[in-house]
Simulated assay, not measured.
Amino acid sequence: MSYKVLDTNDINFLKKIINDDKRVLIDGDIREEYSHDELCGIQKYPEVVLKIKETREVSEVMKYANENNISVTPRGTGTGLVGAAVPIHGGILLDLSTMNKIIEIDEENLTVTVETGVLLMDLTKYVEEHDLFYPPDPGEKTATIGGNISTNAGGMRAVKYGVTRD
């Protein structure tokens, strides 16, 4: 499948959605780290990086990208080992690492509602403060929960407790 290459009109529209030039990176402002994750051998730069702060921004960007056949790659901290955060078709890279709020915990149902950019080390600490336990234990504690869910991460405790989906 081929995707549209972003033009000036696309960039300007995306800037209107984000409404903060510091959170829209193009050209030389795109750091090398956005071109890969920790998997060696796969590297590609996005055409634009959008540092997302709220769900509304995600929704509006995704709607625009869908209507215009623009590739979108979500990314947290980029610690993964599967290439999932690499924008192999260029396009838009959504940096979701700033969506990092823990919204609520439901101790009765053993669930926690969080934003996608919450770090595992922060989630683990938070649930432990409530005498609970988050079993998945990937090696990288600065990974985000969104990345763990999207890649079904496991870690050393997976043998006993299973991976993220379990």
Results as ranks from 00 to 15, higher is better:
residue 2 S to P: 08
residue 6 L to N: 04
residue 7 D to A: 04
residue 7 D to I: 12
residue 7 D to W: 04
residue 7 D to R: 09
residue 7 D to Y: 05
residue 10 D to Q: 03
residue 12 N to C: 13
residue 19 N to A: 14
residue 26 I to M: 01
residue 27 D to K: 11
residue 28 G to R: 14
residue 29 D to C: 11
residue 31 R to H: 10
residue 34 Y to N: 09
residue 38 E to D: 13
residue 39 L to W: 07
residue 39 L to Q: 14
residue 42 I to A: 06
residue 42 I to G: 08
residue 44 K to Y: 05
residue 46 P to C: 08
residue 48 V to M: 10
residue 48 V to K: 10
residue 48 V to N: 05
residue 49 V to Q: 06
residue 50 L to Y: 05
residue 50 L to T: 05
residue 51 K to P: 05
residue 54 E to G: 01
residue 56 R to M: 08
residue 57 E to N: 00
residue 57 E to P: 02
residue 60 E to I: 06
residue 63 K to L: 14
residue 63 K to Y: 02
residue 65 A to M: 02
residue 67 E to F: 01
residue 75 R to T: 04
residue 79 T to K: 06
residue 84 A to E: 04
residue 86 V to L: 04
residue 86 V to S: 11
residue 91 G to F: 05
residue 91 G to Y: 07
residue 95 D to E: 12
residue 111 T to I: 07
residue 112 V to R: 00
residue 119 L to K: 09
residue 125 K to W: 13
residue 131 D to F: 09
residue 135 P to M: 09
residue 138 P to Y: 00
residue 138 P to N: 08
residue 139 G to R: 07
residue 139 G to V: 11
residue 139 G to P: 09
residue 140 E to H: 12
residue 144 T to I: 05
residue 146 G to E: 02
residue 148 N to A: 09
residue 149 I to G: 01
residue 151 T to H: 11
residue 152 N to R: 10
residue 152 N to I: 07
residue 153 A to C: 11
residue 155 G to N: 11
residue 159 V to C: 09
residue 163 V to I: 13
residue 165 R to Y: 09
residue 166 D to Q: 11
